[in-house]
Design a protein around this nucleic acid. Structure first.
Lengths: 227, 227
DNA sequence: GTCTATAGTCGGATAGAC
DNA sequence: GTCTATCCGACTATAGAC
């Protein structure tokens, strides 16, 4: 927190440099998300940021450097939304093992938070494409995304599920089932075009997000109820 | 059928033309899947097909024409695997409404067939990327994929689910839940990199596919059991 | 730090010989 | 139908003025 503040002060007090840097990262998020690494041109990036072409190699060394910086930006922003919940869960798991019922409640809370980010945030519109492209062809940015975001999410999810179903947390079946739980939420992003087409939607409205979350919650309840 | 046969005969009997065309489509499937439409160059495509650069505009009009042809190839090949099952279901739904239990059995059969394609076929390695990119940025090829493949799958799935849960088949909740069912399977493709990382897998082996299918089946059983 | 201008590369499509 | 050669546009990165 203190570091972030210091950064901001540095940005506003010093030169335009840090400001250009920030605008380039935000433009990178959108442009790389829309067109992919190869499809995005440095001209698009510079234009979207209102910056000069040469500012990219200057601030980030290369187009790829900007790409990595965008991945780090995603991790930081998602972190703001979901890390508090994950930290709470990790803390609860550190002490004596939570009761089955409490673990189920925590798991539902985690999934609701997750779905709010995945379908509910307009920020997700930019970074969802970015992340999906890295799933297709994992590169250096995938490491940043996985270590900074996905690992803690899937591990927290798996540990809670293990408690609820009464199994060891590194049981392969638990890990597979963890993915099926997350998949129920993720599908609304990864198959967005199909979902919109079939449901006649053109966006995720507040009501639709609630409907999705309600059904996921119901499904998960039923899955957790099984022995 | 007679048309397909006639085409094949024409291909083998006539000139190299039809053969080059076929090799370009198969190369397109792989190259477009790996690099995306923009990322794939006509030189890569021609090299992978063992064809000349100029053969692409000659046979398909343009690079985009080859792209569309690849989408049609996907529809045809997926169709071979899953259309018989879908047709069987559509037939069963045409007559008098199947019993709840029978609908559940058909739904499980459909999902197993679906998961076999999604995670189990080596053909999927190529076309999964192709389809995912179209979900990100739906273009002309998305129409081909949706109308030729996804529409009938999701509709069959939704109709069966409506019977099992005793609701109208155009109920929004049914359509949403349909997506969550498919999502449990799809996640193993769309988040492949994360799944492999968390589970320590490097491929989908026979045993792992069986494990996935078994857990999906269990989840779906529990979801369908709810009222 | 930011700009313009440019070098050097690679892209898709085409013309025309065979 | 297939090939070679080539056009023309767009790309990333850099050099050097300010």
């Amino acid at each position: 927190m203190a570091v972030a503040l210091a950064k901001r002060e540095l940005a506003s007090s010093s030169s335009r440099g840090e400001d250009t840097r920030q605008r380039l990262i935000e433009a990178g998020l959108k442009i790389f998300g829309d067109y992919g690494f190869e499809g995005a041109s440095t001209r698009m990036l510079a234009d979207a940021a209102g910056a000069n072409l040469a500012a990219i190699p200057y601030h980030f060394g290369s187009k790829e450097g900007l790409y990595r910086a965008a991945a780090e930006f995603i991790v930081e922003n998602c972190g703001r939304d979901i890390l508090p919940t994950i930290s709470k869960i990790e803390l609860a798991l550190e002490g004596k093992k939570p009761a089955r019922k409490d673990a189920a409640t925590l798991l539902q809370e985690l999934l609701e938070r997750f779905s709010t980010i995945v379908v509910g945030s307009e920020f997700a519109d930019s970074f969802a494409s970015f992340v999906m492209r890295e799933q297709l062809q994992p590169g250096a940015a995938f490491e940043i995304l996985y270590e900074g975001m996905m690992r803690r999410l899937t591990e927290a999810c798996a540990k809670l599920l293990a408690i609820v179903l009464g199994r060891r947390r590194d049981d392969e079946k638990i890990l597979i089932r963890t993915q099926t739980l997350l998949g129920q939420v993720l599908v609304f992003r990864t198959s967005r075009a199909t979902v919109f087409r079939q449901l006649g939607w053109r966006e995720f409205s507040k009501e639709q997000i609630k409907a999705i979350q309600s059904i996921v919650r119901e499904n998960v309840d039923r899955i957790l109820a099984g022995k």
